[in-house]
Design a protein around this nucleic acid. Structure first.
Lengths: 262, 262
DNA sequence: GAACCCAGTG
DNA sequence: CACTGGGTTC
């Protein structure tokens, strides 16, 4: 079973690229971020025609997440609130979380806030959001028996080997110590990085800035992840980044990442 | 000698279409309107590489005119003011006029104001502008011996046969009686419509609205013209509209019009 | 319907 | 650099 995650930076702009990619790769589940569209305008039939069940939680212009799955999902919900209650309401104004169950896997698809820069109010928002995320995931663990696959665009490179150049990481958004700690705190509930089960060296990235020819010069960051609970981590066969769609004309700035489960 | 006029609705968006068209047609002079770009950002080298001398008068976002010529132009100027003086200054804030001399022809390239609708202040502006245009053209006639070719997007269909459907022309911008009279007043200095020397019937248009499938249904207007002084009018061999570029993807809403002079 | 600008986000 | 939406023009 192949579960992919891909920040598409607008599903309407990228629908040809995504549809072609799905037809060329045997993907069971695709988790999308930054769909940037309200639900009524999501090009859902385009993907249903390819055999996928489509689950979406979008808003206008920003954020937005979706899951495409060949088999129907159960226990689908969007946002923190349905799981942890009303104190998360403010954070659900931005559509960044969608979840459902496939087989014995609780799939959680995330678009973690970027944070702007570390002197920004948005950075505080990111840290608070990660706190809620931990509460959210723990709630699932307490009330369910499913293994978990928590994937998406985390906007965090956990280690220096996840960045093309480790200079200045301390002050840089996506690599500063406080956000790295906040993410480790989330992972402490028992989640492991599927990609690092198979590949230890640097030079593997999932995002390259549009600016300054970032992709051509391979100035990338690995910020899109699959974090798995232990049983699922054991079953993972492979995990890789597909750079091909990043080479096309008008690409997303992110490449899809795929994990294969036995 | 072939002189073409073409409202390209942004030269930056249309540069491939225009360059290909120039390579496939032996055009000596091309008059462009709605270039929509300030002079420093005009893609001038693209057309110089095709052998053209490039003369431009542009502004940001709106209007803008240009002339491409295989032979250099002389006595080039932009706007009314250099010819008729400071009282036209306000009208030169919008870049709608450029002129130069090729051989024995004074070429005048115009982008006449659209006017919005007939109850609009912009309609008054259009009428005042046409008054200045007459003064401008007469000034050339008084101080020069050149024949004149006055061409461009006039935003006026002079007769009902120039419109796909003559219903409601009286109240419609581009065909209302007052603006038609204002244009006839300009032509009264001795200018004749090159296109009508060769073609009398209706069904020949140079502009089709992007909306409501205007081109597919051939709901067009003939608003792009070459007006010639009598000697030049005698020498005109042919005048036609090339609809081909209007069929391409992402076309201008106007088609080029070409006059051939013996 | 399709250009443009501008502001906001990444 | 590239997305979105909102305003404006034709």
């Amino acid at each position: 079973m192949k579960i992919a995650t891909w920040n598409v930076n607008s599903i309407r702009t990228r629908q040809d690229i995504v549809a072609n990619w799905l037809q060329q790769n045997n993907i069971d589940v695709l988790c999308l971020q930054e769909t940037k569209v309200i639900d009524k305008d999501f090009p859902r039939t385009r993907f249903e025609e390819l055999g996928y069940h489509v689950y979406i939680s979008g808003q206008k212009a920003y954020n937005g997440v979706a899951i495409f799955s060949l088999t129907p999902l159960t226990e689908v919900s969007a946002g923190f609130t349905p799981i942890i209650g009303d104190h998360a309401e403010d954070f659900d104004l931005q559509k960044r979380v969608i979840t459902g169950v496939v087989g014995d896997i609780r799939l959680v698809n995330l678009y973690v806030p970027n944070g702007g820069d570390i002197a920004n109010d948005k950075y505080k928002y990111k840290l608070q959001w990660l706190k809620l995320l931990k509460e959210y995931l723990k709630t699932f663990q307490e009330k369910e028996e499913y293994q978990m696959c928590v994937c998406g665009d985390f906007n965090i490179a956990l280690e220096d080997r996840d960045i093309y150049n480790a200079q200045g990481t301390e002050k840089h958004i996506m690599s500063s110590p406080t956000e790295r700690e906040a993410l480790k705190e989330v992972l402490s509930i028992g989640l492991q990085d599927a990609f690092r089960k198979f590949t230890s060296e640097t030079g593997h990235f999932s995002w390259w800035d549009y600016r300054a020819a970032g992709f051509q010069r391979d100035r990338g960051w690995r910020i899109d992840h699959h974090y798995l609970t232990s049983e699922l981590y054991q079953k993972a066969n492979n995990c890789w980044i597909d750079r091909e769609p990043r080479k096309l004309v008008k690409p997303s700035d992110h490449a899809p990442v795929i994990v294969e489960i036995a």
